[in-house]
Design a binder for these strands. Structure first.
Length: 934
DNA sequence: TATCCGACATGAG
DNA sequence: CTCATGTCGGATA
């Protein structure tokens, strides 16, 4: 939908019923003057994919085009009045030179960037899918062009040097490539001659030579003349007489250049390299030169908004606030304040122990430099002249650990590029650029495995010294400019990053061994902890040694759910760490064509107690007094698995697991054959898992009692299926499965019991559903391992499970499948705190349950249809409302104000009920209400 | 193409 | 003997 008139757009949106998934616009583009391309698209004369690479349109995003000057008003009206907690609308907000207030674009999926970069951002990811197909847009996506040319260069070099394919050779090639890229970049910025060659100039008696690319070009030209022959050409980069600013130090071998490679290099050198986006460029280079990982690198590249979810609340927001605080009336005091802020900025260290190609570090560096410029500018306004000082934010205070050697090289490169770009901005603002350090002083990026080492090796603790000297970094001493002593306590270290996520049960042996090393001594249940949890533990250890450490990582949300919570979080929270801020579950999003299907959280921790804590949930932001491991604004409490109910609840069993490779299950197309046979039909039973229960699907399985084996085997089709099951089980690497091969005629795990009726709770259910599904089924039904079952349980259990209270508990305490509810008997049912009930209470709940079942029968259809959140029948709504009232009246005479209130009550009750076994008094904080809870 | 569940068996208690 | 788990995976609307 394209609407250029903002008033019309707003009124249309206002008139539309606000349903999250039907929000009419995903993409708001603002133009000062709509470019011709948009007009052509609107008129249908240009294929939309030509300007955006097809990404947007493949996702069926809708476009609202409005005038740039109106974007703020439009957003205020759209978001201000309509934003709700459930809003999931995606705003790909593109503006050109228009400032948009941050609060307006706080929506979960918002991506915010200047329109001129639109092509870049989308174009950049197309290379991951096959960027040769990419057609450059009018907006000149320089990153993509650069990527294309570098890839061609790289491929040409590989083709010319087939022996470079080995690991070591490949690494040499990668080193060479990153240096080449830097040469092109630096040459373009014009900074190279006086700084990069400083040493060379000295060594060669003032013979600075020409700009680096010219030097290289001439050499390559000579090489290309002797195509394929090395002859007497330099073999090592260190042999280049002028190329010796440290950039080509070490044993970097020079690959042979073909004419094609040479031509590609000169083409690439012709681009405007200083317009490259340093933040994403690192990922791009990595993708280009590392074809084996093109796919996954793209998938796992952390988008800028997600990086800022970590950096902003951790330290940038605070610094920005400080930098833009209204001036003190007294000029000299204001000057002192600003200078103190500059000093503070110079003493900040950022450390990413899973830095990849350095995106977090680059963004952090850029943002700090921006803040510094702002402060310097204010200082200039007071003193009336240019500050006369260079940037005090030094690359060597940016630390990283990266397991891939090439990514580590790329991270250094990206930091150089970021520095040059920031220096240029500095020069534009203040007329002169800070001096460049020798290039060897890049970020402190260590190539290694972060979990396998003590982080102090990669990012040493700051120490104080008395003498003045120029120091390579804060870790070993003082102010980088040697003018000031650095006192321990003043150095701030922020650990950030997006470590790899590998499920606790999905690690390979090496990774498991790492986790054991990291977690041993804290818990013996470390096998339950996701790989990313290891980073939290390492960060904790680091913060025990180094003062002023705060850290925040992006992680899978499973870290804050289910089993992992009582295992991992006590380690952290009982070692005097506290959660300073957190982003609750959000979908992983970047612009890669194939996104990782993962749900993330961001958790930031510190050792400062008290003070405000910030909890982000979608586009909601809450200041709270405490955040627990479930990322709820409640005191710490861990819900441990139980094997029997805490309260008086009937047992609930895990369903029956076929372990059959599908052979014991009968598909709908096959059921006819069985049912038409009077003998075979006696071996068939209906089976339900989550899907069957929720969508009312009929499905069947073979169910053969021990005493009827012979009879069953006499039927050829059944015999065939049993044999297939046996073969399958016998071939398993798991001893337990192999032993089941002896009884291939029955399910691998059987917990079914004879019963009159079974209450079935599907294990997975959509998060959109307002209540958990729970069904009353006849006793002959077999329940699969995708559901839980209670045999002949009283009806009032349905009332409890179907209540809002229970849903909230399950959501908070159990694991998740993506963001959907995942039921668990041990984590959710047996732990569910229920008040003691009278006979009258039971009766009342039973009648509520009956009413729900009756309403369902009346409404008809499947659970999925009945509980469609957009279309729930009033009868059913009423039945559930009455049920909720009945259940909640058991807990509280005066009812609850909000879900936060309900959840707080449940946690409080749980804490009380388990106080004895936990050997603790009831946490006094639980006496507080749940004010402020979401 | 997004949503909604499912399998699938593994590992660990 | 039990059951949570998945930088998942498939099916389907």
């Amino acid at each position: 939908m394209y609407i250029s008139d903002i008033d019309e757009a707003v009124s249309r949106i206002a008139a539309a019923p606000f349903v999250a998934d039907e929000f009419p616009f995903d993409f708001i583009a603002a133009y000062d003057a709509p470019p011709a391309t948009i007009t052509r698209i609107r008129n249908g004369t240009q294929n939309a994919s030509d300007i955006d690479g097809g990404v947007l349109w493949r996702q069926k995003l809708h476009l609202l085009v409005c005038d740039a000057g109106q974007i703020n008003e439009a957003l205020a009206r759209l978001l201000g009045s309509r934003a709700t907690a459930t809003q999931k609308a995606k705003f790909l907000l593109a503006t050109d030179g228009v400032e948009v207030a941050a609060h307006d674009i706080d929506a979960e999926d918002t991506i915010f960037f200047p329109f001129s970069e639109l092509g870049n951002r989308f174009g950049f990811f197309l290379p991951l899918a096959g960027y040769s197909r990419y057609k450059a847009a009018d907006d000149n996506p320089i990153d993509v062009k650069a990527a294309n040319r570098l890839r061609r260069l790289y491929d040409a070099l590989i083709a010319e040097n087939p022996e470079w394919e080995g690991d070591a050779k490949r690494h040499a090639m990668n080193l060479f490539m990153t240096r080449i890229i830097f040469c092109m970049f630096a040459e373009d910025t014009g900074i190279i001659p006086e700084h990069l060659f400083a040493r060379t100039i000295h060594d060669h008696g003032g013979h600075a030579g020409e700009e680096m690319v010219h030097v290289l070009t001439s050499i390559f030209t000579a090489m290309s003349i002797r195509e394929g022959e090395r002859g007497d050409m330099p073999r090592w980069a260190t042999d280049f007489p002028w190329v010796n600013g440290g950039l080509f130090a070490g044993d970097i071998e020079v690959p042979r250049f073909s004419r094609t490679a040479f031509r590609t290099l000169t083409e690439a050198a012709g681009l405007r390299w200083n317009e490259i986006n340093a933040d994403i460029f690192g990922s791009m280079i990595q993708v280009i030169v590392d074809p084996a990982h093109r796919h996954e690198t793209g998938m796992h590249y952390t988008s800028v908004p997600n990086i800022l979810k970590v950096l902003d609340p951790l330290f940038l927001d605070e610094l920005r606030t400080e930098a833009s605080r209204p001036a003190l009336a007294d000029n000299s005091r204001e000057k002192a304040r600003l200078k103190a802020l500059l000093t503070r900025l110079s003493k900040i260290r950022v450390f990413d122990p899973a830095c990849g190609s350095g995106n977090f570090l680059v963004i952090a560096y850029q943002e700090l430099r921006k803040i510094e410029r702002q402060v310097l500018d204010r200082l200039r306004a007071i003193t009336g002249h240019a500050p006369g000082i260079w940037s005090h934010i030094e690359l060597h205070n940016f630390y990283g650990i990266e397991i891939s050697d090439f990514a580590a090289e790329t991270a250094k490169l990206s930091l150089w590029i970021a520095k040059f770009q920031m220096d240029r901005a500095h020069r534009d603002m203040f007329g002169s650029a800070p001096p460049s350090l020798p290039l060897t002083d890049s970020g402190n990026i260590h190539n290694g495995n972060a979990l396998a080492q003590d982080w102090l090796g990669a990012c040493p603790a700051p120490i104080s010294v008395n003498h003045r000297q120029k120091m390579p970094n804060l870790a070993t001493a003082v102010d980088a400019h040697g003018t000031e002593e650095v006192i321990d306590g003043e150095v701030e270290t922020y650990i950030v990053g997006n470590p790899p996520y590998i499920g606790a049960r999905k690690m390979n042996d090496v990774q498991k061994a790492e986790m054991r090393t990291v977690a041993q001594g804290y818990t013996n249940k470390w096998t339950n902890i996701d790989y990313v949890g290891g980073w939290f533990i390492r960060a904790m250890q680091y913060s025990e040694t180094v003062p002023n450490v705060c850290f925040a990582f992006v992680a899978t949300n499973s870290l804050c759910q289910g089993q992992q919570v009582p295992t991992l979080w006590p380690i952290l929270l009982e070692n005097s760490l506290a959660i300073r801020f957190a982003h609750r579950s959000f979908k992983w999003i970047n612009n890669a064509p194939k996104k990782a299907g993962v749900i993330c959280v961001v958790v930031g921790m510190d050792r400062v107690h008290g003070g405000a804590r910030t909890l982000f949930d979608g586009n909601l932001r809450q200041e709270v007094s405490t955040i627990n491991a479930y990322l709820l604004p409640l005191p710490n409490i861990y819900i441990d698995e139980r094997t029997a109910a805490l309260c008086e609840l009937p047992p609930m069993d895990f369903g029956n697991m076929p372990l059959d490779n599908g052979n014991l299950l009968i598909e709908p197309a096959e059921i006819e054959d069985f049912q038409s046979d009077p003998v075979a039909s006696t071996f068939v039973r209906p089976i339900v898992g989550s899907k069957e229960a929720i969508r009312s699907i009929d499905r069947y399985c073979l169910w053969i009692e021990d005493d009827r084996i012979a009879q069953a085997l006499a039927i050829p089709e059944i015999d065939r299926r049993i044999e297939a099951t046996r073969v399958f089980r016998a071939g398993s690497p798991r001893p337990q499965t192999r032993s089941k091969a002896r009884t291939p005629y029955k399910f691998g795990e059987i917990r079914q019991r004879n019963a009159d009726h079974i209450i079935v709770v599907p294990s997975a259910s959509s998060e959109r559903r307002p209540y958990l599904p729970v069904l009353y089924m006849p006793g002959e039904t077999i329940v699969s391992n995708l559901a839980f079952m209670m045999f002949d349980a009283p009806l009032w259990t349905i009332s409890l499970i179907a209540s809002r209270m229970h849903l909230l508990w399950i959501e908070a305490v159990c694991g998740k499948l993506k963001t959907d509810y995942r039921y668990s008997n041990t984590l959710g049912w047996y732990t569910f705190p229920v008040p003691s009930m009278s006979q009258a209470d039971y009766k009342r709940l039973e009648s509520c349950a009956e009413n729900i079942l009756l309403a369902r029968a009346e409404v008809g259809g499947s659970i999925a249809e009945q509980y469609d959140p957009n279309n729930m029948h009033q009868l059913l709504i009423d039945a559930h409302t009455a049920n909720d009232e009945a259940v909640e009246s058991l807990y509280s005479g005066r009812g609850f104000r909000s879900d936060g209130d309900r959840l707080g009550h449940l946690f409080r009750r749980y804490a009380k009920l388990t106080a004895d076994e936990r050997g603790q008094e009831v946490d006094p904080e639980f006496a507080l209400g749940m004010e402020g809870a979401a």
